[in-house]
Design a protein around this nucleic acid. Structure first.
Length: 286
DNA sequence: CGACTTTGACCGGCGC
DNA sequence: GCGCCGGTCAAAGTCG
């Protein structure tokens, strides 16, 4: 777990990040039982077929340090240790959402004769929440990374609905909570700004998409390739790879986005990996 | 009018 | 037990 990121990191992976335009400054991978299987997917991603131009195409873009390490968050690790090592990630999310629904229906049947409707609702709600909490803790692998960007919510090809925002302790920047808008998809993500470096956005994905990216699905003839939007990131490819779903990343995209390049990446190999602390806003005073 | 955001309230976990 | 904190809910508001 403490080993540095593999030197076999393929060019496609970092090339893909290069196409994002947003400079990847750090990747934080939660290590856990799920993570083992998830990491396979992630590693598979690293060996994906090239879908980005060669490094020589990066031109004059200012390089930024790339730091990759595995997360040391003991809290998360502890939660994840209870998680079953379930490589079949698609079954995870469908199971969890269906499970909740089934439980809900069952609960309604059992309390049919109950006079106190409010009580019933409260009970059901409570159980639902407990179940959700347990499932979340046990099932959802997380994947967090930091990007240098001026916008908080980075485009990743999926559609998200914001469902909450909270002030973060010791940070002037709030944390936003998003859910994938796809009804069958259980993926959530948290977005917050590092208070150490406000130019850095910390994005944490939880769960896996059970559907392809809407952007990927779009037929080539339906729309032109995305513009060279510096804020557009195809995290979907990384995440799909990480989560073990075969990524169809980059389909329909014939042009590279604005490119950036890491000095740590040379000749297709990641070099001089520098571990970085978990964002101070999270890790401080713990 | 539907989709999405905002925001206060609520709840559970955790440390003291 | 209490208070703090993170995460989620859901009603109200906003926007196209």
């Amino acid at each position: 777990m403490e080993d540095p990121f593999p030197s076999s990191l393929s060019s496609s992976f970092l090339d893909h990040y290069a196409t994002s335009g947003c400079t990847l400054t750090e990747i934080l991978e939660y290590s856990d039982e799920c993570g083992k299987s998830s990491s396979l997917g992630f590693m598979e991603l690293l060996n994906m077929q090239d879908f980005a131009p060669s490094p020589s195409a990066f031109g004059d873009v200012q390089p930024e340090p790339l730091m990759i390490h595995r997360n040391q968050d003991s809290k998360v690790q502890e939660l994840m240790m209870n998680a079953p090592a379930t490589p079949n990630t698609s079954s995870i999310s469908s199971e969890s959402s269906d499970g909740i629904k089934d439980e809900h229906v069952k609960q309604d049947d059992e309390e049919e004769e109950d006079d106190d409707v409010d009580e019933e609702k409260k009970k059901t709600k409570k159980q639902l929440k407990v179940k959700k909490t347990i499932q979340k803790k046990q099932r959802e692998p997380r994947f967090a990374f930091m990007t240098k960007s001026e916008v908080d919510h980075l485009e990743d090809g999926y559609r998200w609905r914001k469902y909450g925002q909270k002030a973060v302790k010791n940070s002037p920047f709030p944390r936003s909570y998003y859910k994938c808008t796809n009804a069958t998809c259980n993926v959530k993500k948290r977005v917050e700004r590092s208070y150490n470096d406000p130019s850095i956005v910390v994005t944490t994905y939880e769960g896996q998409h059970t559907h392809p990216s809407p952007q990927v699905l779009r037929p080539p003839s339906a729309a032109p390739p995305p513009p060279h939007n510096p804020q557009l990131i195809n995290y979907s490819a990384l995440l799909n790879g990480y989560m073990g779903i075969s990524a169809n990343c980059g389909a329909g995209e014939t042009q590279p986005h604005q490119l950036s390049f890491s000095p740590f990446f040379n000749n297709g190999l990641l070099q001089d990996v520098v571990p970085a602390p978990w964002p101070a806003a999270k890790r401080e005073d713990q």
